[in-house]
Design a protein around this nucleic acid. Structure first.
Length: 855
RNA sequence: GCCGGGGUGGCGGAAUUGGUAGACGCGCCGGAUUCAAAAUCCGGUUUCUUCGGAAGUGCGAGUUCGAUUCUCGCCCUCGGCACCA
């Protein structure tokens, strides 16, 4: 055996073996327990970044661990291939998106293979492949038939210079990113899916997902946002028209002092015809972006319409306003305003001098004044006519009942969740299979499979499809839809297609019923809401088509944190910053090791140490995985990414840390080589162990327990690795050349090799064979604990006096409470702290500590 | 603005159910080896200290025999907010 660890050599060798033996090909086998492990597929942006490496290493570790547990594991990989960056690259370089995307896929696939991930590459798919997207086109036509897809107007960001629709990320400070023009809102016809029909089920089924992080469940619940409230009508003072509103606080109804509608509400538009000031206001509201964050943070503005409505209970005349914070797309596009009991209404009323009316008062007499702020709590009603004296809770029902009797309103369940707009005015996506006929009516394309033309030029002014009559003009007066689907469409069902990527007659076949649901899904926390909600929704749509049987697509979810790194920069004369890559920086440290100065290695001059931020091109702090793989090998990169932080937390990149991981693998290699060189090892004689040998064996088996729990249950790979490092430290210090000593060394080394094999599969595969095993380690069984090794004669207990550590004592492991107390109290140092004091209480926590409470 | 996280030595992090704060690694300091360096190996490393101890997990309160862990208030920071993926 080569005494030197040579990663590049052994890794290519091992990878070739895996490939030749088709080691990771997954086949349906009803006799075996399946395990479907899925990592979120990447967008093929060019090359892998550290976030990918981290995500896919986590998935690979779990997959390999489950395989060693005897499961039939399937781990696929593919490409989320449609999307905006390909169009941006096309504008820059002139390369068509299809070509750019496919060449990126080739490069990134080679990178993934070099990292040694145990994928079944036969199941690879790319969403830009017509054989993939034709099936979502098929599903869409089914949804049209079922009334689950429909068309309506919706607002987009419009760049008036580039004459194109902008994504939210392309709007910077309210301006188009390329043109710099002030962005406008524009309403256009778009396709929507009725996800709201499934809102209740999407909410209820979250309870079926105990394997999901609580924070994701909470965010999804809040996003769906079920509320119980009352819908009611306010009649316009003149004419028969009603303004319909929804409120969750009908108990404050008698405190309504104005109504606000969206600027583009029909009533507002009508009034604007004879009111130039209002028309101006509506036009101003057309400026700016469409995001919720923008809406919520902008200055709240409004204007009186010059119209009034009638209060449904009191008959009072109430003014009607148009306001920029009321959104046409939410609910009815109108809200009732209660300045006394809603803070936003309070501020609006303050600004425009509208009356504030208090109708809710505190029950316990605590301060509930509305002079300085709205009173938001529930309480008891006053100034509320027939409802005076009722509690907020009782008033809710009383007012709802009254409105219902009068035919003016009723209780309603409302969801914050809105229907999913799936139309995108972009080229690089799946064509929406719809046709507009001669009468202007929409119908589904008779052949649902509309292929996207791939030989195009992209210039940034609107979708190329709109300039291709050969695509959209069907010649008989019919026109093909030129919009494409939101790319969340593709990522909403890829997990199912992996089960049967070659199914040619249907979207999915019976193989999906074997593999689904996904047992473990791994991906970035940034997908906690949208992607996961849409995928859950699609699963239910596919279930209702009879394609899958499960209600939920992902049984367990692991959300991994970002990868971040230090930043370094120099400020130019004009105030702009030039950012330097951490690889090009030299750090100077003080005696304690804290960084005091950073210099650019090239010129030796100082640079400013910036914040630690998410790896990005703009801050030039990205670390290229490829150069690390070239230098240290895949195992070192895998080991470091798993060791540096638990998977859910952000991971701070450190080149020195990678060096440490490499050092550990070298030590493992060398310790194994030295041990093997000394020749054969006799069987362990368990009943002839010295105390030291027993302690070492105890450590080996405690480590198995810990690593099993850390990898199998907790997913804290960092502590699993730390535990094996501890064990290696103990083994390398043991220096026991006796027969039993060498047998324990072998037991320990083989244990570490098995425990680490899911994380560093190449080095462990080679060592496993060097240790004389004929079968590859990927098919070895996970090590089992020898319970007899865990038995201890004595235990260490900590002794506290008044909660402070004062001694450590050894007691027989079968000692009773009284013996333990006596032993603790008689300790010399403990005596010093309890001398001349009264012992009030002694708390014994078995196996852990004794706390003596003295006065 | 709204929803959801996070904050522990010089650094990444550990402490799993309220029970020894700082495992493991990095960095730094000292030593061995070396003509020298790299590599490797050994020891030390929260702060203060009168060397007995004391303080300490973002800040301020609280519950408890005991709080990094639970409760309340605040500060900072990160993710999401429906057309980035």
């Amino acid at each position: 055996m080569n005494p030197l660890y040579d990663p590049s050599n052994i890794e290519t060798q091992v990878q070739t073996n895996w490939e030749n033996s088709q080691a990771f090909k997954a086949t349906e086998d009803p006799a075996r327990e399946k395990f479907y492990c899925l990592s979120m597929f990447p967008y093929p942006s060019g090359k892998l970044h550290m976030g990918h490496v981290r995500n896919y290493t986590i998935g690979d570790v779990i997959s390999r661990y489950q395989r060693m547990q005897g499961k039939n594991v399937m781990q696929p990989m593919g490409w989320d291939a449609f999307g905006l960056p390909a169009e941006n690259a096309a504008i820059k370089s002139g390369m068509p998106p299809a070509e750019w995307t496919r060449s990126n896929i080739d490069y990134m696939k080679a990178q993934l293979q070099r990292l040694g991930f145990a994928y079944d590459w036969d199941r690879e798919l790319a969403t830009c492949d017509p054989d993939y997207y034709k099936w979502e086109q098929w599903l869409f036509t089914r949804l049209i038939d079922k009334g689950l897809a429909y068309r309506k107007k919706a607002t987009v960001n419009w760049d008036p210079v580039d004459q194109t629709v902008l994504a939210n990320e392309q709007v910077i400070d309210g301006k188009g990113w390329r043109s710099g023009a002030v962005v406008e809102k524009r309403d256009i016809e778009q396709w929507f899916l009725r996800i709201t029909d499934y809102a209740q089920e999407l909410l209820d089924d979250l309870d079926k997902l105990p394997g999901w992080p609580d924070r994701v469940l909470t965010q999804q619940r809040n996003w769906i946002g079920r509320s119980e409230g009352v819908q009611m009508d306010f009649q316009l003072e003149h004419g028969n028209e009603n303004i319909s509103i929804y409120t969750t606080r009908p108990d404050t109804l008698m405190g309504v002092t104005y109504l606000a509608v969206a600027a583009e509400h029909s009533t507002s538009l009508q009034a604007a015809e004879s009111n130039p000031e209002l028309a101006d206001f509506i036009e101003t509201c057309q400026k700016g972006g469409v995001t919720e964050a923008e809406m919520e943070t902008m200055e709240k503005k409004g204007i009186a319409l010059g119209l009034n409505v009638i209060h449904p209970v009191s008959g009072e005349i109430i003014p009607l306003y148009a306001a920029n914070f009321v959104l046409m797309a939410y609910g009815t596009g109108a809200v009732m305003a209660v300045p006394g009991h809603d803070q936003r209404d309070w501020e609006f009323a303050e600004k425009y001098g509208i009356e504030r009316k208090q109708v809710i008062f505190s029950v316990d007499g605590s301060d509930c004044s509305i002079e300085k702020a709205a009173f938001l709590e529930k309480g008891v009603l006053k100034n509320s006519g027939p409802f005076d004296g009722l509690s907020s809770e009782d008033a809710f029902d009383a007012i709802a009942d009254w409105l219902k009797e009068q035919g003016k309103g009723e209780k309603q369940i409302h969801f914050r969740l809105r229907d999913w707009g799936v139309s995108r005015q972009r080229y690089w996506g799946c064509p929406i299979p719809m046709i507009t006929d001669v009468n202007g009516e929409s119908k589904t394309a008779s052949d649902f499979h509309v292929r996207l033309p791939e030989d195009v030029t992209v210039d940034g002014s609107g979708s190329p499809l709109k300039k291709m009559p050969e695509f959209y003009d069907l010649g008989n007066g019919e026109v093909r839809e030129t919009d494409t689907f939101d790319t969340f469409f593709e990522s909403s069902w890829y997990y199912a297609r992996y089960c049967c990527p070659d199914a040619s007659d249907s979207m999915l076949d019976d193989r999906a019923k074997y593999w689904l649901p996904v047992d473990q899904y791994i991906g970035g926390i940034e997908h906690a809401i949208l992607h996961l909600l849409y995928a859950r929704f699609f699963n239910k749509l596919m279930r209702d088509e009879g394609l899958v049987e499960n209600d939920e697509p992902f049984s367990k979810l692991l959300t991994q944190g970002m990868v971040i790194a230090e930043t370094y920069y120099r400020t130019n004369d004009d105030g702009s910053r030039e950012w330097f890559n951490p690889a090009d920086i030299t750090l100077e440290r003080d005696d304690k090791g804290s960084a005091i100065r950073a210099t650019l290695s090239a010129d030796g001059e100082s640079v400013t140490i910036g914040r630690i931020e998410k790896m990005s091109k703009s801050k030039n702090n990205g670390v290229d995985p490829q150069s690390l793989i070239d230098r240290y090998g895949a195992d070192t990169v895998r080991l470091y990414t798993m060791f540096a932080a638990p998977p859910e937390q952000t991971l701070e990149w450190s080149d020195a840390g990678v060096e440490g991981a490499y050092r550990f693998l070298k030590r493992l290699w060398k310790l194994s080589a030295t041990h093997l060189e000394a020749g054969d090892v006799p069987d362990l004689k368990k009943d002839e162990l010295s105390d030291a040998q027993q302690k070492t064996r105890l450590k080996i088996h405690v480590t198995i327990n810990k690593v099993n729990d850390d990898i199998g249950r907790r997913y804290t790979f960092n502590t699993a690795i730390a535990a094996t490092m501890e064990l290696i430290n103990i083994l390398s210090h043991a220096k026991d050349e006796s027969e039993n000593g060498r047998a324990i060394m072998r037991e320990g080394l083989e244990t570490v090799i098995l425990l680490l094999s899911p994380i560093v599969p190449h080095i462990t595969e080679v060592l496993w064979r060097e240790f004389g095993h004929a079968k590859p380690i990927i098919d070895a069984a996970w090590p089992e604990v020898d319970e007899s090794a865990l038995v201890q004669k004595e235990l260490q207990l900590v002794v506290q006096v008044n909660g402070k550590l004062r001694a450590k004592i050894m007691v027989p492991s079968d000692a009773d409470q009284k013996q333990i107390e006596e032993s603790a109290i008689s300790d010399e140092n403990v005596q010093k702290f309890i001398a001349e004091k009264q012992i009030r209480k002694v708390i014994v926590v078995p196996g852990r500590l004794v706390n003596i409470v003295v006065s």
